[in-house]
Simulated assay, not measured.
Amino acid sequence: MATCPQGHASADEEFCDVCGREIGGTQAAAVPDAPAVAEPDLPAAGAVCKVCGAELAGRFCEACGHDSMAPAPAPAAPVPPVPADRLPEATTWTATVTADRAYYDSVMAVDGPDAAGIAFPPYCPDRHFPLAGEQVSIGRQSRSRGIQPDIDLIGPPEDPGVSHLHAVLLAGEDGAWSIVDLDSANGTVVNDEPNPLRPNTPRPLAEGDRVYLGAWTLITLRRA
Results as ranks from 00 to 15, higher is better:
residue 2 A to G: 12
residue 5 P to T: 08
residue 12 D to M: 03
residue 14 E to M: 11
residue 15 F to Q: 02
residue 20 G to I: 06
residue 20 G to M: 10
residue 21 R to E: 13
residue 22 E to K: 03
residue 23 I to N: 08
residue 33 D to C: 00
residue 36 A to R: 13
residue 49 C to L: 09
residue 54 A to W: 07
residue 61 C to D: 05
residue 64 C to R: 07
residue 66 H to C: 01
residue 72 A to L: 05
residue 73 P to V: 08
residue 75 P to C: 06
residue 77 A to T: 12
residue 87 L to T: 05
residue 88 P to C: 08
residue 89 E to L: 15
residue 91 T to V: 15
residue 91 T to N: 00
residue 96 T to I: 15
residue 96 T to K: 13
residue 98 T to Q: 14
residue 100 D to E: 14
residue 103 Y to E: 09
residue 104 Y to I: 04
residue 109 A to H: 08
residue 113 P to G: 08
residue 115 A to K: 02
residue 123 Y to F: 14
residue 123 Y to M: 10
residue 130 P to T: 09
residue 132 A to H: 12
residue 134 E to M: 10
residue 135 Q to F: 12
residue 137 S to G: 09
residue 162 V to E: 01
residue 164 H to Y: 06
residue 165 L to D: 13
residue 166 H to N: 07
residue 170 L to E: 15
residue 172 G to F: 00
residue 174 D to R: 10
residue 183 D to Q: 15
residue 185 A to W: 05
residue 188 T to E: 06
residue 194 P to E: 11
residue 197 L to H: 03
residue 199 P to I: 11
residue 199 P to T: 11
residue 199 P to K: 06
residue 204 P to C: 11
residue 204 P to K: 13
residue 204 P to N: 12
residue 209 D to R: 03
residue 212 Y to K: 01
residue 212 Y to R: 11
residue 214 G to P: 06
residue 215 A to L: 02
residue 223 R to L: 08
residue 224 A to K: 12
